[in-house]
Amino acid sequence: MLIRINQDAHPIAPSEITPESLYRGRRNFIRAAGLGAAALAVSPAFAAAKLGAIQKSPLSSTEAPTALKSVISYNNFYEFGTGKEDPARNAGRFKTRPWTVRVDGLCAKPRTFAIDDLLKLAPLEERIYRMRCVEGWSMVIPWNGFPLASLLKQVEPLGSAKFVEFVTAADRATMPGLALPVLDWPYTEGLRIDEAMHPLTILALGLYGEELLAQNGAPLRLVVPWKYGFKGAKSLVSIRLTDKQPATAWNIAAPNEYGFYSNVNPEVDHPRWSQASERRIGEFTKRKTLPFNGYADHVARLYAGMDLRKFY
């Protein structure tokens, strides 16, 4: 599949390189088009805005990130269709500006955040995380965002808050997948409060240094790297602190297949397929899946004493 072309054998002739004036001209053209027809806002599937300063993080993986092309074209986002290429194809009408996120529930200062305020809420970090899908494939994604804890601290959670519920966008006009009752819309997810406050748990607003595209969960999504990918709720509209374990979309759909915790666990198979190995996108052979997706040192203690076969 990967055909390596020897660069030395085909040197790039200076004549093939686009002169600066030309590509600047193209950019001006795009900018003009953007101003005229708001093209950039209309089609978030293809245009991404650069993010500002981004700090590196010691929590990042040193593994090679998956190609951007794969990260933005191979997605599970059922609100835009159940095929892997559906989200990139069908997200064209989805609007991520204006956007607000309501953060409330058991907290002292419930608040509604506008997306542009969220972008400035905390220093943006690059977090290069493994992402393991429950279907048996994985990627390494350089997310840009900040710890979820940074946001939750702003609303001052009460001591009675034991869980966090995430509700995602469900706009029938721009999300064609909602027409099918595949899941109980809107898609909901949940974390225990200690999972939510864990430094590895982030709100991602971008990847590869650019704002998220719709297919990746724009304008902001949850990323919990030691759990199966579906726990990372996309296009969040509401974050609520509760004292009860929230219902989650996949658990409602198939409780015997998708538990509330859904920690990556090679020992506990999906009832219909093995979770012992995974195919890293871009690789030919499969690799062994690691407990907690390789983050056991950071998070295994959160589940001390729990039977992970029961709490899958």
Partner: peptide
């Protein structure tokens, strides 16, 4: 499509 790398991110699937 395979030889032209047009089978998407997960050609084996």
């Amino acid at each position: 499509r395979l030889l032209n790398d047009q089978l998407g991110a997960n050609p084996i699937e």
